[in-house]
Nucleic acid binder design. Structure first.
Ligand SMILES: [Mn+2]
Ligand SMILES: [Mn+2]
Ligand SMILES: [Mn+2]
Ligand SMILES: [Mn+2]
Lengths: 217, 217
DNA sequence: ATTTATTTTTAGACAAAACTAAACATTTGT
DNA sequence: ACAAATGTTTAGTTTTGTCTAAAAATAAAT
């Protein structure tokens, strides 16, 4: 597996989560910042290797084998992110790009030793689950603040958007994983949500509310 | 800088240590397990970028700029090796190949944070010095056992050959960095050396004696 | 049901890094 | 000094991954 093949496989994996349908060429191109023609070439190669199913003009989907491979790459990515935050003191908005490179280092032993060293974390710094060595994910029941009802409260367990901009915005608002949030009121006019968090009460936009996941308690 | 350019630069750096002369195309090809013609192509490219001096049929040498770049790569390599041994519990004969990949991860901040995390180590697991962030090396006065005189003693501070085979052989003989060794007798017939180490007295071959460095005390 | 628009694929080109085989330069041996 | 041996470069391919432009297929609109 080359670095490029791994990145394509991972992209297809992410586009397939919460979505049984075939993935379109353009969807992949859009997310990877390449041209559709490049994607087509790569899809043929991955299909040739038995990692995806691919039918002309129809789109692509992971095979069982591709699913397992992709989950391994995601596992590596997320373990490295934990390392960067927990051990090297990076902030959660800085780690993605570095992990994007580290995930391609090829050594089973390395990743198992890293996992030991980190004490087998189950979630990455953005709350996303870390697949086990067989590619199995234990995901958590979580709901965006935007879908929680007035009066409910929950723990912040993840973010939907993990761009630097959004994560830094959360830092600025002093919202972090593990904090408890109560839904005070939802404003029907613009779908903004009034919440309380750590003795502060304030309002977040619908967009923000859509990108923060809670585990209701 | 591509991965490949970095590997070539590092090879030239290593071949230039203890040697002012220009490095021959074949020397590089031999060490990197490529063909001379591939080396020639790369030398042109590196010269083009101002990282080496290169004159047809004469050989190559690092420029100031190339020197600094190469030292940075070596710094990354050796810091990762320390990480793998100290934190992930790899043995010293397993880390080189993994570090060969890790050294290419591009992030200044990563490497400075790693250096902090490791407490600014000055030597890698094989006793080789780690360049500082400016590429400056503080090397140590060290002498191969083969060149030490009878009656002298010293601490094991490095190995010349750091192949897995040799390192595993040292493990088997229970010789490790930091141990104290006394030169009991040198046998003129085959240049083997009788040494004592940790209350054991035994004989090592000339080849072995040439590949273990001592700091005389 | 055609026409139009969008998406996807093909064809052809390019850059990076490798190789083989042949040409050229340097060194060595006599 | 010259021929042979060795070392190095050039020329021409190959593989991987990308791109542009044109062709083909599918989807949307009138
Ligand atoms: Mn990430
Ligand atoms: Mn990646
Ligand atoms: Mn090494
Ligand atoms: Mn390398």
């Amino acid at each position: 597996m080359t670095l490029s093949e791994e990145d394509y496989l991972k992209t297809i994996y992410h586009l397939s989560r919460n979505n049984q349908e075939l993935i379109a060429t353009n969807a992949i191109a859009g997310r990877m910042d390449t041209k559709a023609s490049s994607v087509t070439d790569m899809l043929k190669k991955l299909a040739e290797k038995g990692l995806i199913t691919y039918k002309k003009y129809q789109g692509a989907g992971l095979t069982e084998k591709g699913q397992v491979m992709a989950a391994k790459i995601v596992r590596r990515h997320r373990l490295w992110e934990v390392f960067l935050v927990e051990k090297l003191q990076f902030s959660w908005d800085e780690v993605h790009d570095i992990a994007e490179e580290l995930e391609h280092i090829k050594s089973e032993k390395l990743i198992e030793k890293l996992d030991d060293f980190l004490n087998h974390p189950r979630f990455d710094p953005h709350g996303d689950p870390i697949p086990d060595k067989n590619g199995v994910i234990k995901s958590m029941v979580k709901v965006p603040i935007a879908s929680a009802s007035e009066g409910e409260r929950g723990l912040v367990v993840g973010v939907k958007n993990s761009s630097s901009e959004f994560l830094q915005y959360l830092d600025k608002m002093q919202i972090a994983l593990g904090m408890e949030i109560s839904i005070i009121r939802r404003e029907p006019f613009d779908n903004s949500v009034e919440i309380s968090c750590q003795d502060r009460t304030f309002t977040i936009s619908a967009l923000t509310a859509n990108n923060i996941y809670l585990k209701i308690i």
